[in-house]
């Protein structure tokens, strides 16, 4: 009978040792001179080899502040982690909290000050230009168009519980029809044959007909306002026209923020980095690396964005606090409507 107790004992000893280790926090001091700070970002933020990283290198050259980038998962995972580690953060600056997650981030727990807007983008219905030409049909423009009989069985959207563009599109319909009216809108959309995919990639590449080389047969998909320029930029050989267009009246505005994490050991250096993230030197590289628009109005867009991206003048949006308060309930209600 000695065996199990030994085994358990070894487990217990290790846990106790670790618990003891966890108790002792080291004294840390902010140092002058060269410092290294950590930028926490979502997965699609490049850690190396892009124009954004080159811009960060010039920041280091000017300030003696080295920026180490860590990626924490998708934006939702990143914010959850930041909440769990509030006060003892994984890094000094966080990039990319958006307005659908912002409420959790701005209740004073995560950031030292109100975070700064760094970029924005839109989630919009994209259409397959060739398909609509072949069928001699005008592409839809507004959310109300999508429930018209001529667009029956043409649209594929993402599940708002599983995908961030899916959630943004649901939020667009809630902003458009109000908290009491969006359910009716979705009943009509369901009756008009909307298809639900679980992720952006399966909607855009497997179901949508407009993406290059796709096998899909749906000419309408919920994607980004910047997807058409991406199709142009990443075509090989280069093309001069976009295969897809954007229904400008269906867009939800996503705004991303960056801020200094509460508990940083280098608050001054962190603040300087956040400031740098809003300067033209950094902002001008955003469109062609992250496919978002610079928050800094002084920065000109690349030609391919001016030509093919649609920046709606009056996109739908909702208050972050409103989104945080109702998100789960909206997702549950949406489930009931779409699954019946």
């Amino acid at each position: 009978m000695g065996r199990p107790s030994l085994l358990l004992a070894s487990l217990a000893v290790v846990s106790t040792m670790l618990a003891a280790c966890g108790g002792s926090a080291p004294a840390t001091t902010a140092t002058d001179g060269p410092v290294t700070i950590t930028l926490v970002a979502y997965d699609s933020f490049p850690t190396k080899d892009t124009a954004l990283n080159t811009a960060l290198a010039t920041f280091t050259a000017q300030t003696d502040i080295t920026v180490n980038i860590v990626t924490a998962g998708d934006a939702g995972t990143m914010v959850t982690k930041a909440e769990l580690t509030a006060g003892n953060p994984e890094g000094d600056v966080m990039w990319g909290v958006d307005n659908t997650l912002l409420s959790a981030a701005t209740d004073g727990k995560i950031f030292t000050d109100a975070p700064t807007m760094v970029d924005f983008g839109d989630v919009c219905v994209n259409y397959d230009i060739a398909w609509f030409q072949q069928h001699e049909l005008t592409p839809p423009v507004t959310l109300d168009d999508l429930i018209k009989p001529e667009y029956k069985d043409l649209l594929v959207v993402e599940n708002p519980a599983a995908s961030s563009p899916g959630l943004a599109f649901l939020l667009a319909t809630i902003a458009a029809s109000g908290e009491g009216g969006w359910q009716t809108y979705w009943e009509s959309l369901t009756a008009n044959g909307v298809e639900v995919a679980e992720s952006w990639d399966s909607a855009y590449y497997e179901r949508f007909s407009g993406s290059a080389g796709s096998t899909g047969d749906k000419p309408l998909v919920v994607s980004y306002g910047s997807s058409p320029p991406a199709e142009v930029v990443f075509a090989d050989p280069p093309r001069t026209d976009a295969p897809t267009g954007v229904a400008a009246g269906t867009c939800f505005r996503q705004i991303e923020y960056a801020g200094v994490l509460r508990g940083t050991k280098h608050p001054e250096a962190a603040r300087r980095l956040v400031q740098f993230l809003t300067t033209p030197a950094f902002q001008q590289e955003l469109p062609l690396t992250l496919f978002v628009y610079p928050a800094n109005k002084a920065v000109a867009l690349p030609a391919v964005f001016q030509q093919f991206a649609v920046v709606p003048t009056d996109p739908y949006t909702l208050e972050p606090a409103d989104i945080a308060a109702h998100r789960e309930q909206w997702q549950d209600e949406w489930n009931e409507i779409v699954l019946r």
């Binding site: 997965d43 990639d201 080389g213 994607s223 997807s227 991406a230 199709e231 990443f234 075509a235 090989d236």
Partner: peptide, 16 residues
């Protein structure tokens, strides 16, 4: 696998 997922979650034929 993470690099693959990043490439596949982009619009455009070349990254895909």
């Amino acid at each position: 696998p993470i690099a693959i997922a990043r490439l596949l979650s982009r619009a455009g034929e070349t990254p895909r």
